[in-house]
Write a protein that binds this DNA or RNA. Structure first.
Length: 466
RNA sequence: UCCCCGGUAGCUCAGUCGGUAGAGCAAGUGACUGUUAAUCACUGGGUCCGUGGUUCGAGUCCGCGCCGGGGAGCCA
């Protein structure tokens, strides 16, 4: 028995006339009085299913084949033949169909061969990967992850596994989830009445990480080019199509690099992974273009072939001030850009991805490098139409005195950052990095408008099912 | 957390002025057919989110609660 994936069979790797075995799940069954049934079988290896011809002569035709419904699991052995129908070039004439797993009650099987809303599919997250859409997302997600690793690897970047559990209680990027083994009902108390975290598992307060950046900087100042790719956690009560409590992020960090090299890397990375997904997942991308977002292929091709616009924050303010567009939030230098402003810049002014750089220091994090003007920092955001911020990054402050000043201004405890400050004491060099939101990238690529539908099991406020 | 919108058959939805429940798809049965999310006919399928109220009468109107979606803020 030679088991083939449907991707291999449809990819022309199996000669006609050969006897093969495929395994998968039934999508639909159509019966013909000509003495055969058509069963479309899907195994997830490609977007397209394989059509199985089930002749009435099969010993289990009456007893089993005629009762197959969507979702049944099959192992089929037969001869690969040229199709005499339209819609496919090859099909499998079954000599043997083994029902590996039945659907016990077809009427209540949640994945009917029909259109379902994504909202509904979220409520059956364990079965939704069997749909065209979510299956395609899963393959595109994998393809993008591989492309990112490959691109960074080929450019000399080392993947560093930064910790998920962190002790720094103030990384400055949002609310944290506590990690604790203390008894919630009767926690140990300090003499002052507070909770005594010295008795907790790690002997101190710990949290899930909101970013691997601070840790990866340490490896950057030893291996020169590094990156993280892992899960990240934010305990914010964000209920939007662009936020998750658990999401994945890619954070490259480059030594001896400034903000402009950083922006160049971001642009090259995005272009390369878009190019790869267009070529390696053409089947799934064609589906997204047909059913989800007509422009998604064209959009990626355009991005791959044109340079990213670069815009200074101060220039952007000027553009917004001069624009005839009316904004709910008035525009003035020093303000943080609102969604409506970012959307105008990316969707109307540039009509494509743009890199915004050199923001006022007051609205950015303590670790971003102070520019010579004394009032802006070397920060950058990459904005894309439809999603908004897909990348946030900066050149890091490598000068200890200036870093300390920023820690003080931000009211942070310097002692808690001693190891981070050490990096500025021992062989400090200019370095820069950014965070790429993986789900937002998938969302942008596929046109799937909600990040909850591009991660297998989304975690959101009041949402940790499955 | 705030602002909108929604919750009716397995799914997607309609439901008029407050008068006692409908369609499409799915499922089952049959017809037809090398079919393509086939087509046609028939059949079964309902705690109208929960709760309290107004009313002779509530899916429909009002209060409260729960859940979901979109947008905002935060950010990736």
């Amino acid at each position: 028995m030679s088991v083939h994936t449907i991707a291999a069979v449809l990819g022309g790797k199996t000669p006609l006339g050969q006897e093969i075995t495929v395994q998968g799940w039934v999508r639909t069954r159509r019966d013909s009085k000509a003495g055969l049934s058509f069963v479309t079988l899907h195994d997830g290896s490609s977007f397209e299913p394989l059509q199985i011809i089930a002749p009435a002569e099969l010993p289990n035709y009456q007893g089993e084949v005629l009762h197959l419904t969507a979702g049944c699991a099959l192992r089929v052995t037969g001869e690969l033949i040229a199709s005499s129908g339209k819609g496919q070039t090859v099909e499998l004439r079954a000599a043997r169909i083994e029902v590996v797993g039945w659907v016990e009650d077809p009427e209540t099987y949640p994945i009917a061969p029909k259109a379902h809303s994504f909202e509904y599919l979220r409520s059956v997250a364990h079965l939704r990967p069997r749909t065209n859409s979510i299956g395609a997302v899963a393959r595109v997600r994998h393809c993008l992850a591989q492309a990112i690793h490959r691109f960074l690897h080929e450019n000399g970047y080392f993947w560093v596994h930064t910790p998920i559990i962190t002790a720094s209680d103030c990384e400055g990027a949002g609310a944290l989830f506590r990690v604790s083994t203390l008894d919630l009902v009767n926690p140990p108390r300090t003499p002052e009445g507070g909770i005594d975290f010295s008795q907790d598992f790690f002997g101190r307060e710990t949290f899930l990480t909101v970013s691997g950046q601070l840790n990866v900087e340490a490896y950057c100042l030893a291996l020169s080019k590094v990156y993280t790719f892992g899960p990240t956690f934010r305990a914010e009560n964000s209920n939007t199509s662009r936020h998750l409590a658990e999401f994945w992020m890619i954070e490259p960090e480059t030594a001896f690099a400034d903000l402009y090299a950083n922006a160049d890397l971001a642009e090259a990375l995005l272009k390369e992974i878009f190019r790869v997904v267009l070529s390696e997942r053409a089947d799934d991308m064609a589906f997204f273009a047909q059913r989800i977002d007509k422009t998604c292929i064209q959009r990626l091709e355009q991005v791959v072939n044109s340079p990213f616009e670069r815009l200074d924050y101060s220039e952007a303010i000027g553009i917004l001030e001069r624009s005839v567009q009316s904004f709910a939030f008035p525009v003035r230098w020093g303000m943080d850009l609102q969604s409506e402003h970012e959307r105008y810049l990316a969707e109307d002014y540039v009509k494509g991805p743009l890199v915004l750089i050199n923001y006022p220091k007051e609205i950015k994090s303590f670790y971003m490098r102070l520019n010579d003007d004394g009032r802006t920092v070397a920060a950058m955001d990459v904005l894309v139409p439809g999603i908004g911020e897909i990348i946030g990054g900066s050149q890091r402050e490598e000068r200890l005195d200036l870093l300390d000043a920023r820690l003080d201004e931000s009211g942070m405890d310097k002692m808690a950052y001693n190891w981070y400050r050490d990096l500025r004491r021992y062989g400090s060099v200019p370095h820069a990095g950014f965070g790429l939101g993986f789900e937002r990238t998938i969302s942008y690529v596929t046109g799937m408008s909600n990040v909850r539908d591009v991660i297998p099991f989304p975690r959101t406020p009041r949402g940790a099912d499955y």
